[in-house]
Simulated scan of single mutants.
Amino acid sequence: MINAVIIEDEPKAANELKDILEQIRKDIVIVKTMGSIEEASEWFQQNDPPDIIFSDIQLSDGLSFEIYKNIDLSSPIIFCTAFDEYTLKAFEANGISYLLKPMTPAKVEESLRKYDELKAAFSKRQPSANQLEALIRQLRPSYQTTLLINVRDKIMPVKAEDVAYLYYNNGVVSVYLFNQQQYFIQETMDDLESKLNPSTFFRVNRQYLIHRNSIQEIERYFSRKFIAKLFLKTPEPIIVSKIKATPFMNWIKESI
């Protein structure tokens, strides 16, 4: 029997893959399905490695390559991703197959055929940390480094690194700089969150998107929430919601 794990943060996609595997291969047993870097890292540290790993790339808490860079695994990995074929050539160069979403039985069968053919090689060869880091750099999106803000009847460019935090109130997004100047920007918080580097900016709640260097201290709040206090004065307290609390603390640890 082939013991397999699935690392996928979308339950629907994980269930689809599991159903396909059960249909086409009776010798595959799904021993675990996980949805985050944190969960997978902990599981691999406490359990024997599986025979094969089906892994998405973009998870809720980052790129899955971080799992394999930090944990010594000999298991072959079949990546499940929505990236185009040009990018995926990098995986093949490292002896790793892939599934291009949306998944179909034919695609899964082709990936498993590669697994069968390369099984012996996979057991001996694991991509190096440098190779995985190269893949991370290649797949990491290009984030916006400049914001265009409104200054009366003019538009002025401001470097993202100079932004301490962004604040949403009554349909208006304000930009607060480290030099304590305040401006307005004609973009939504959702758009800004997707455009700014998540290693630098974190959306703690509906109203605030904050730069990590603006954080002075963090206080515990009731119901497992936190209050983030910045070096700058803010219009109202920055309460980190319960659902964001764990990702927020993990994000903070990345800078230590």
Rank of each mutant, 00 (worst) to 15 (best):
I71F: 13
F44P: 10
Y98C: 03
I28R: 06
P105S: 02
N70F: 03
Q45C: 13
A93I: 11
D72S: 15
A106L: 03
L100H: 06
F54E: 02
V29L: 11
D72C: 11
R25C: 09
S111K: 03
F122D: 04
S111G: 15
K114H: 07
N47V: 09
A90V: 02
R113G: 01
E66K: 13
I96A: 12
E117T: 04
S41R: 12
Y86N: 13
A14Q: 12
F79R: 02
L88G: 04
C80T: 13
R25G: 05
F83Y: 15
G62L: 00
Y98K: 02
L112I: 02
A93M: 14
E117Y: 00
L17Q: 09
Q58F: 04
I67Y: 10
L99M: 04
I53M: 11
T33H: 07
V108T: 08
A106V: 04
I71T: 10
T87S: 07
E66R: 14
Y115A: 01
F83I: 05
C80Y: 06
D72N: 15
K12E: 05
T33V: 15
K12Q: 09
D84G: 10
G62S: 06
L63D: 03
P11H: 10
E16V: 11
A14K: 09
S55D: 06
K12C: 03
K89E: 13
F79M: 06
